[in-house]
Design a protein around this nucleic acid. Structure first.
Lengths: 160, 160
DNA sequence: GATCTTTTGACTTTGTTTGACCTTTACTGT
DNA sequence: ACAGTAAAGGTCAAACAAAGTCAAAAGATC
C-alpha cells in the first residue's frame, strides 16, 4: 500500500506533466482536504519530494488568497544547478569566484548582459560592506537567489 | 483564486490605463458596492497597492460630494531618479518601500519582469539575513546600485 | 530495539477583510 | 449667519484566512 506521501507526490507530478509550462499552483488546505490529511503533510511532501536537488522550486504566499506554486526546472539547467547551487554556492563565495560565476552564466546565456553587470556590482564588496565572514556568506546567498530566479524560465526541454 | 485586494487593484489599474491622463476619480462606497465588500477595504487597497513609492498619489475629500482621486505619476525622469538616489535611497530602506520602488521601476519600463522579480528576492529579509539597522542600510545600497545601473542607458552624456 | 520515514497537531507568521467608531464637508431649514 | 443633519471618507484593532515550523507520535525496516 503506497503511502500518503507517495500518492500526493504522484498526484502533483501528474499535474505538472499535464501542464506544458511545468508550473502549477495550488492551495495547501484544499490539497490536504483532497487527501484527507493534515495540512502540514503537504509541506512534508514538498520538502522531501520537491526539493531543489530533485529539480523543483517551490514558492508560496500566506494569508488570504495564499497559494503554493510548484515549478519543475528544465532539465538543461538541472546539472548546472546541482553543481553550482548545491556545491559552490552552499556556503561562502569570494568576489573573484562570484564574478567568474556570473561571467560563465552570461556566456551560457542564462543572464543578459545587463543582469550580469548588475549582479557584478551587487556582489562587489563596496556594495555589501560587511566584514569578512559575513560578506562572503551574503554573496553566496545573493548568487543563489539570482541563479534560482534565472533558471526558472529557461526554455522547457523535452516532455515525459 | 485571486483575492479581493488583487481584483480591486487590477480594476483600478485598468481604469487608469484606459484614461490617458492617468487620473481617475471614484466614490469609495460605490466601489465597495461594486465588489461587495467593506468600504475600508478600499483604503487597504489604496495603501498597499497605490502608495507614493509605487508611483501613485491619492487625494480625497470627505462629506457630501466626496471622492477619491487616483493619480498615476509620470514616468520616472532623470531628476526624479536623482532625488530618489539622494533622499529616498540615501540611508535605509524598508522591504515594503523597496518593493514599491521596484514595482514602479518595472511599471515604468525601466526594469524587465525578470529583473524586477530578481531584485524583489534580493532585497527580501530572508536573503539579506541581517539585524535591523544594517539590513535596511544594505537594502538601500543594493537599490542604489541597481538604480544607477538601470539608468546608465538613459543618461545621454554617459557613453560607456 | 534502534533508526529512519511518515503523519499529526499545536503554535507561529503573514496577508486580508470586516466593523465599530471618528472626522470632514455640503446642504437645509430657520 | 447658524445649527443640525446626512453623506461622504478615515482609522484602527480584531477576526479571518492562508501557509510555515517544529517536535512528538506512529509506522516501517532491518
Amino acid at each position: 500500500m503506497s503511502s500518503l506521501v507517495d500518492r500526493i507526490e504522484r498526484y502533483l507530478k501528474e499535474l505538472l506533466d499535464k501542464n506544458p509550462k511545468g508550473v502549477i499552483e495550488l492551495q495547501r488546505n484544499e490539497l490536504a482536504g483532497l487527501f484527507e490529511c493534515a495540512p502540514s503533510q503537504i509541506n512534508y511532501v514538498l520538502s522531501t519530494r520537491f526539493s531543489l536537488h530533485r529539480g523543483y522550486i517551490v514558492e508560496s504566499r500566506r494569508g488570504g488568497g495564499g497559494f503554493i506554486k510548484l515549478i519543475k526546472l528544465p532539465l538543461l539547467s538541472l546539472d548546472v544547478v546541482c553543481r553550482l547551487l548545491l556545491e559552490e554556492l552552499g556556503g561562502e563565495v569570494s568576489q573573484q569566484v562570484g564574478e567568474g560565476l556570473i561571467d560563465r552564466l552570461y556566456e551560457d546565456g542564462l543572464l543578459t548582459a545587463r543582469e550580469a553587470s548588475l549582479l557584478r556590482k551587487l556582489i562587489h564588496r563596496d556594495t555589501l560592506q560587511l566584514e569578512l565572514p559575513e560578506r562572503d556568506y551574503l554573496r553566496a546567498r545573493i548568487l543563489r537567489v539570482a541563479l534560482l530566479e534565472v533558471i526558472k524560465d529557461e526554455i522547457p526541454w523535452n516532455k515525459d
